[in-house]
Design a protein around this nucleic acid. Structure first.
Length: 112
DNA sequence: TGCTTGACATAAT
DNA sequence: CATTATGCCAAGC
C-alpha cells in the first residue's frame, strides 16, 4: 500500500526504505532481517523488518522470501514451505529443516 | 500513557 | 547444536 509522500510516520519510512532494500537483493542470494534493518537506517530494528515483511501489501513486488534470519534459517512463522520452494527455484539450497548457507548465498555476508 | 505481541539478534547455558 | 534470557522497534488496543 502506497504511502503518501507527506506521510512522515515511521510506517512510511519503513515501507519505502525496507522494501527498496529488499528489492535490491538479487535472485539466488539472501539477506538477513538485521542487514536489511541496518541498511534501512534502523540500528536494531530486525523485528521491525519482520513486521514490515508480514505487512507487504498485495501488489508490491518485494522478494520477501530472500530475507531470512541471522542464524541462516528461514523464519518458521511464515509460510516456510512456500519460501523454500521460491528459494530453490532460484538455485538456493535449503535443507529440510529450513537451513540456508549464508556463507554461500548471503547477499552481503557471502564469503567469496 | 502503558502493556502485549511479533516473519528478530545475540550471548549465555 | 538446541534453549533460554534480554534487548529492540513499531503497532494495536
Amino acid at each position: 500500500m502506497p504511502v503518501s509522500i507527506r506521510d512522515r510516520t515511521v510506517k512510511a519510512r519503513i515501507f519505502v526504505g525496507i522494501y527498496a532494500i529488499v528489492r535490491r537483493v538479487p535472485p539466488g542470494r539472501v539477506a538477513t532481517y538485521g542487514e536489511v534493518a541496518r541498511l534501512a537506517g534502523l540500528r536494531n530494528g530486525a523485528r521491525t523488518v519482520g513486521w514490515a515483511m508480514a505487512s507487504i501489501p498485495p501488489g508490491a513486488h518485494v522478494p520477501w522470501w530472500r530475507v531470512i534470519r541471522s542464524d541462516g534459517r528461514v523464519a518458521p512463522r511464515c509460510g516456510a514451505a512456500d519460501q523454500h520452494r521460491r528459494l530453490r527455484a532460484e538455485g538456493v539450497r535449503v535443507s529440510r529443516s529450513g537451513g540456508v548457507s549464508l556463507r554461500r548465498y548471503g547477499w552481503l555476508s557471502a564469503a567469496r
